[in-house]
C-alpha cells in the first residue's frame, strides 16, 4: 500500500444521512471478479438523475466526500470503497460511519475521518458559496482545512499509523506466524473442522 500523509481535492457534498453501501454501489455491480474499474458503478442509481451532485462538472472527478451521518452502513461490500477510490475520492468525512465500511476504507487507503455534524453543515455551506472549493485532509496533523477554516478529524491511531507507513496488514500479521502456530497447537479437539466432509 502507498504511504499517505495528506490528500487535497474538491470538497464534494453528500447531503444525506444513512447512505448505505447498497446506494454507494448497487448489487448488480458486484458480479465482477476484478478489484478495479468500479468508477461507473459508484452511486449508479442516483447518478441517473442529472441533478445528482456527481453529475455537476465541479464534482465529477471526486475529491473529498463530505457526508451526513451514518455513511457506509449496511452490506460489507468492499466494492463500495473501491468504487469511491476508482471514481477519484481520496477521503470521506462524516460524523458516523458503518463499522465495516470504515475498516474496509482503512485497508484500501481511503481516508475515513470523523467530524461533527455542525462541521459537516459548515463545510456544505462553504461549498454552496464556492462550488469546487479545495479541501486538504492532513493525516499527520489529523486536520481538514479549507483556506483558513481548519478542524480536527477523528481517525484511530492504528489506522493512521498503517496509512502513514503504507503497511500491508497481512505482511504485518505474518511477522507473528510462530505465535499463530503456537496458538493452533493449543486448540481444543472439539472445535469444528469443515474437512473431511461428513
Amino acid at each position: 500500500m502507498q504511504k499517505i500523509t495528506s490528500v487535497t481535492g474538491a470538497a464534494v457534498p453528500m447531503k444525506r444521512s444513512n447512505v448505505d453501501t447498497d446506494q454507494i454501489i448497487p448489487a448488480v455491480f458486484l458480479k465482477r471478479v476484478t478489484r478495479t474499474g468500479f468508477e461507473d458503478a459508484l452511486f449508479a442509481n442516483w447518478r441517473q438523475d442529472p441533478e445528482f451532485v456527481l453529475n455537476k462538472p465541479e464534482f465529477a472527478h471526486g475529491g473529498v466526500l463530505i457526508a451526513g451521518p451514518d455513511f457506509g452502513t449496511g452490506s460489507s461490500r468492499e466494492h463500495a470503497v473501491w468504487a469511491l477510490r476508482d471514481f477519484g475520492f481520496t477521503a470521506v468525512l462524516s460524523p458516523r460511519f458503518g463499522d465495516i465500511f470504515r475498516s474496509n476504507a482503512g485497508k484500501q487507503g481511503l481516508l475515513a475521518g470523523q467530524i461533527t455534524e455542525a462541521e459537516v453543515e459548515h463545510i456544505w455551506q462553504m461549498i454552496d458559496e464556492d462550488p469546487g472549493v479545495q479541501i486538504t485532509v492532513d493525516l499527520v496533523e489529523r486536520t481538514a482545512s479549507i483556506g483558513e477554516y481548519t478542524i480536527s478529524i477523528g481517525i484511530d491511531d492504528y489506522t493512521r499509523w498503517r496509512l502513514l507507513e503504507g503497511l500491508d496488514d497481512i505482511g504485518l500479521t505474518l511477522r507473528d506466524e510462530a505465535r499463530i502456530t503456537e496458538f493452533e497447537s493449543r486448540r481444543e479437539s472439539w472445535r469444528p473442522k469443515t474437512l473431511p466432509v461428513k
Partner: peptide, 17 residues
C-alpha cells in the same frame, strides 16, 4: 461480517487484527 481485504487476511493467516 468482513470486507474482501479481511477475507484475504483470514485466508492467509486464519486471524484478524
Amino acid at each position: 461480517g468482513i470486507g474482501t481485504s479481511e477475507v484475504e487476511h483470514v485466508m492467509a493467516t486464519q486471524t484478524l487484527p
